[in-house]
Design a protein around this nucleic acid. Structure first.
Length: 723
DNA sequence: AAGTTGTAAT
DNA sequence: ATTACAA
């Protein structure tokens, strides 16, 4: 324990070096371009402030938003025979994650199950979360569907600079190992400000998306992640440097250290290393012998709570895959059918993404008595251009037809189909995703965004740019001037990746955030509050509300849900005014993925289905009434919405140029909307360089970004039956 | 471990 | 192409 001082010392140094060193690696190219940026010339932050966000029982939350009646019952999300997650009502009754369905039903006979094999809704909500965070600060890294890291160092520094000496800073939420709030926040002003930002972001995700979650605030990804789970659910915790050794020491085994998986743990065990302290004290040289220098050093550092890995913006996914597991597939015919089915939905998803896949991979899992888990084999091959084009251009059926034989070839490379075989799983995957489209390079105005929807291939906002977009001070316009292309870069062409109607996951917003905002935010009172730039005004939305929707109810919904409803209203509403809020039906199958996304309850719940049905949809007004999480009730956020409503011109006030899709328009950040409309009024385009850039770490390898977001069909309207 | 994705390193 | 790791 007397080496804890040393650890911290070391950590401090790590921060320094990492701050100096690492930015040039990833986001830094972006910064190179703006060599004159004030933030680069300003004092370098002493250390980073990293947030880790972790949404509460994510799949269950999404289902509870889709059907609020589920909020009051024990709910489990079922994939095959497993409860992958469950809500807190179920947890109180002893249900846990990854419990078998039978065990869960024993523990909790009234458990309501929702099938969760189709990840569409989860994926969509997940990207909304990431996008929302990105609208405040571009340095967001996803970890799975329900976690995000964020490097808010520059945001914190800015707030710190704005904070007067005499102002008293305090922590929000918990502080690890300081149960009585006996913390002198002024000793840790950056972390304290980080905790405030975290709290505001959690409020915003609740008000806009209806999602609750935990946050950890610390000086590295490792620590932020470790501390975020200290208080659950829906709470946040900060970790002070003097408590690093506490939190590391508390871990029951090295397996708890993020980055130490099953295999690593086994090898460590072979060396007699089982606890975190074992690893801390284990001779580095011996460790190197087993793992090699880089890995060994990293492991040792992790055990000491040292992690200088940067938050690497994730962007659009690098691969899309679809898979299914099953008891047994033993004939070529079944294989073919399964592959066909999987490809059907994968190709459709790929098409919506808009990029063109260049590599196809087939993965299988063979049944085997021993080592039942982790025997996946795969084969991959290039996709001929003409087939890839069919995928991205939407000739899905034709594409599938041509892909199936390719897949079967790969299959035969792995399985002697003359002999008997027994498969447990099949996975199909597109990777090497290429941004499609010819370019339209220097579209000066972002209006081009609508016409041929520029996709920010590797576009990366310079990291500092619009974080704190709405911070007070009103010096906002400053940032944007810097968003110029790096002349030294090849400044690749902005590629168009999707057509206006297309729905993609996405990061449209990324590029729009690059737009300059001429006027400072209307109010000063937003000083300490976060404001999102992606709002659609309430009034704008209510105008377009279908007649059977109670505006009152509608207004109470999270903003994103409202948008989603609106975006699908035209399609769904007229035909689909349907009735019951809960349909008890078996999820048909994956072909149904894209078409009917209606909520379903599985058969095994027939017994409890009545319980659910009892909840009249007309309850939704109350259930959906999001009050702020911790009962903090009316917060800055409310004012913000008010402000935005007041300050944003309504869509009806302004004629769109013919080539502009109002739907797309409505999804833009308010500021961009405002600006566009100003532009249209004056008919004089402002000069906005779309900015491309990239260069990230591995110059070439990553082609991130792209995509817009998907507004899937969905049946949320059924919760708004006119009462 | 179970299930369905995704990334990174080898 | 495969393994490891993560949620």
């Amino acid at each position: 324990m007397d080496n804890s001082e040393d650890e911290m010392e070391e950590d401090e140094n790590e921060w320094r070096t990492s701050f100096v060193d690492s930015p040039p690696l990833s986001p830094a190219r972006a910064s190179v371009s703006g060599s004159s940026l004030n933030w680069t010339s300003g004092p370098a932050p002493a250390h980073r402030v990293i947030l880790h966000f972790d949404l509460d029982c994510f799949y269950a939350q999404v289902e509870m938003i889709r059907n609020p009646a589920l909020r009051q019952v024990p709910l489990g999300i079922q994939q095959k025979y497993i409860i992958v997650t469950c809500n807190y009502v179920a947890r109180e009754q002893g249900v846990t994650k990854l419990m078998s369905v039978t065990a869960a039903k024993e523990k909790c006979p009234q458990l309501v199950l929702v099938k969760g094999e189709d990840l569409t809704h989860y994926r969509e909500m997940s990207y909304k979360m990431t996008e929302l965070l990105m609208s405040y600060c571009p340095l967001v890294e996803r970890l799975g569907f329900d976690e995000n890291f964020m490097d808010i160092t520059s945001m914190v520094e800015r707030r710190l600079a704005q904070t007067s000496e005499t102002e008293r800073i305090s922590f929000r939420g918990h502080v690890y190992n300081h149960p009585n709030a006996d913390v002198e926040a002024s000793d840790h002003p950056r972390l304290a400000l980080g905790s405030q930002i975290a709290a505001e972001l959690r409020e915003v995700t609740y008000s806009k998306l209806g999602l609750t979650g935990c946050a950890g605030i610390a000086t590295s990804k490792l620590l932020a992640k470790l501390v975020s789970g200290a208080f659950k659910p829906n709470q946040q915790t900060s970790l002070l440097p003097e408590n690093i050794s506490d939190i590391m020491g508390c871990l029951s085994s090295i397996r708890k250290v993020p980055g130490v998986g099953h295999q690593t743990a086994k090898r460590l065990k072979g060396l007699g290393v089982v606890s975190v302290t074992d690893l801390q004290l284990f001779p580095l040289n011996d460790l190197i012998g087993e793992f090699g220098a880089p890995c060994a050093q990293r492991l040792k550092n992790l055990s000491l709570g040292v992690d200088d890995s940067p938050v690497t913006p994730t962007g659009a996914p690098q691969s899309l895959s679809d898979e299914d597991s099953f008891k047994k597939i033993a004939s070529t015919k079944e294989v073919l059918e399964k592959i066909q089915e999987l490809l059907g939905s994968l190709v459709e998803r790929m098409h919506k993404d808009g990029r063109q896949p260049q590599t196809f991979r087939l993965t299988i899992r063979k049944h085997s008595a021993t080592n039942k888990w982790f025997n996946r084999e795969s084969r991959q091959c290039p996709i001929p251009n003409h087939i890839g084009q069919k995928v991205s251009s939407g000739c899905c059926d034709e594409a599938v037809v041509q892909l199936v034989p390719m897949a079967m070839k790969l299959f035969h490379k792995m399985v002697e189909s003359s002999a008997a075989f027994h498969l447990n799983l099949i996975n199909v995957c597109f990777s090497n995703l290429q941004t499609r489209g010819a370019a339209a390079s220097g579209k000066g105005s972002i209006t081009s965004f609508f016409t041929h929807s520029t996709s920010p291939g590797k576009t990366q906002i310079s990291s500092q740019s619009q974080d704190d977009f709405f911070q007070a001070g009103g010096n906002l316009s400053v940032d944007h001037q810097f968003i110029t292309k790096d002349p030294s870069q090849k400044t690749e062409v902005m590629k168009s990746s999707f057509s206006p109607g297309q729905a993609l996951h996405g990061f449209k917003r990324k590029q729009s955030s690059v737009v300059a905002v001429k006027e400072p935010p209307p109010q000063k009172l937003c000083c300490s509050t976060l404001r999102s730039n992606c709002a659609v005004t309430n009034s704008m939305m209510t105008q377009r509300l279908p007649p059977n929707v109670d505006p009152e109810v509608f207004r109470l919904l999270p903003e994103e849900i409202q948008k989603e409803l609106l975006s699908t209203a035209d399609k769904n509403y007229p035909t689909n005014t349907s009735a019951s809020s809960v349909t008890a039906a078996e999820v048909p199958h994956s072909t149904d993925n894209m078409t009917s996304l209606s909520f379903t309850v599985t058969q095994n719940v027939k017994d409890t289905k009545d319980t659910v049905d009892k909840f009249d949809p007309s309850d939704s007004p109350t259930t959906m009434n999001h009050k702020s999480p911790a009962g903090q009730s009316l917060l800055p956020g409310e004012n913000v919405m008010e402000e935005e409503r007041l300050s944003l011109p309504l869509s009806s006030d302004c004629e769109f140029p013919g080539n502009v899709d109002p739907k797309v328009f409505s999804e833009l950040p308010v500021d961009v909307q405002r600006e566009l409309m100003a532009e249209w009024k004056q008919q004089k385009p402002l000069l906005k360089t779309p900015l491309i850039r990239k260069g990230g770490k591995s110059t070439m390898t990553k082609d991130k970004k792209v995509a817009g977001k998907s507004s899937q069909t969905n049946n949320l309207f059924k919760y708004f039956k006119p009462s």
